[in-house]
Amino acid sequence: MKYLLVLSNGGKKRFYHNYMYSKFSLDRKLSVEITVDDYPDSDKLIKLINSLSHSNFDKIFAIGGGSVIDIAKVLSVFLPIANQRKIKNLQEEDLDLFKEKKIHLTAVPTTSGTGAEATQFATIWDHINLKKYSIDHPSLLPEEFLLDSNFLNTLSYENFLYPVLDCVSHTLESIWNSNRNASSLILSEKSLKIISNEIGKLSKHNYKDIDFSKILLASNLAGQAINTTRTSIAHAISYEYTIKQGVPHGLACSFTIPKIHYFILKEVNDAIYKNFLKYTSKIIEHLESLELLNMVNKFEKDNTNIIDLSTLNPSRLNTFLVKPSIKTLEDFTNE
């Protein structure tokens, strides 16, 4: 057996590779380690795939945050393709032709919110054209995942906060979503219940009091929910802020949530969403106390790229309960 271990540079410094060798009884002599960057770049990823194309790995193991797991998901599907021909464009490949050849993937999330271990899509970034796109196919779903909350104990407040905010966004967006169904709503409610019980401790001085195992479970449940529904309007807005202003993903997709919440209650009057107010009211109140927009504005001041809300990804906007106007989108992002 030959193994590929994918982790971040930070994970390498924290000796995550040693954890994986021990936990899964991997032979170091039969393993190849690679470290990857945050926010996977499409050009770099294609080069990586082609450079590893003839390695013939039997299994891939990924340990890290959402970016690490997303990269490993792409590798698990595209390496068998690259073994036969050079990859030039990730979006042009017909993954149905190779779904039986994908490499077995085990994912171990070390952050508290992406849910990437439970989804069949991966986020890829085009840093030249300042665009984000997704690769979405059932074969990208990891065959196996392991939730170990001990990793959350090592995170700084910011590194814990942003993924939790991403989890909150996933949970809420799976509800205010045109693709929701009975199964996804059950998952969303389970996640909401956990978040509403724990979010009051989400502050710089108290976050260590959060039950990490529960918040990691909430992240996984929310990941399962968006695997059915996909994300929605908050994420559609977020990508502009992340790729143009450098706003961390979890923060970028959560600062608009309170205003979207009130918009749905006032303008959409969605009966299903109202059923969850016993959870969401507490969550929204705490998000407002965090003053997330002020955090976002600190990033904007250091960057000259202009946010253009008219160019948002329609695949994410179209999952929202109603079609928002540009003015509505602007209202979501302004004070």
Rank of each mutant, 00 (worst) to 15 (best):
W125M: 07
G250C: 10
W125L: 06
Y279S: 05
E288L: 13
I46D: 08
V6G: 02
I210R: 05
E285V: 13
V247S: 04
D148G: 00
S139D: 11
N275A: 00
N313P: 05
F57E: 03
I49P: 05
L75D: 04
S188L: 01
S169P: 06
F332Q: 05
N297T: 11
A271F: 04
S22Q: 15
Y39I: 11
S139C: 15
E33S: 05
K301V: 14
K274T: 11
L155K: 05
F332E: 02
A116Y: 00
V164R: 00
K208E: 09
A107V: 03
K190N: 14
L185F: 10
S156K: 11
I135S: 03
L293C: 04
G200E: 12
H205A: 14
D94S: 08
E158K: 14
E117W: 01
G115Y: 08
N318K: 12
I243Q: 01
A122N: 06
T110D: 07
I69Q: 06
V108E: 01
T231L: 07
I135Q: 07
L130C: 10
I195Q: 02
T154Y: 11
S42Q: 13
K131M: 12
T154L: 11
F61P: 07
L202Y: 05
G10Y: 06
T256V: 14
N275H: 06
Q224W: 04
Q91S: 15
G200Q: 10
N305W: 03
K266D: 15
L290V: 12
K99Q: 12
G11K: 01
S174W: 02
V268A: 11
M295T: 05
K73L: 08
Y279G: 03
I307C: 00
L161R: 06
P138G: 00
K101F: 11
S53E: 11
H249M: 09
I307Q: 09
I103Q: 07
A82D: 04
N227T: 00
K244A: 04
M1E: 12
K259I: 10
E330Y: 08
E335M: 03
A62Y: 01
I34P: 02
V247L: 10
G115P: 03
V322I: 13
F98G: 06
T231R: 02
I69W: 01
T35D: 02
C167I: 02
L312V: 15
N159E: 09
N83T: 04
L317Y: 07
K278D: 09
E158W: 09
L287Q: 06
G66S: 05
S31P: 04
I124H: 03
H205L: 15
L45R: 06
N318P: 08
T111I: 10
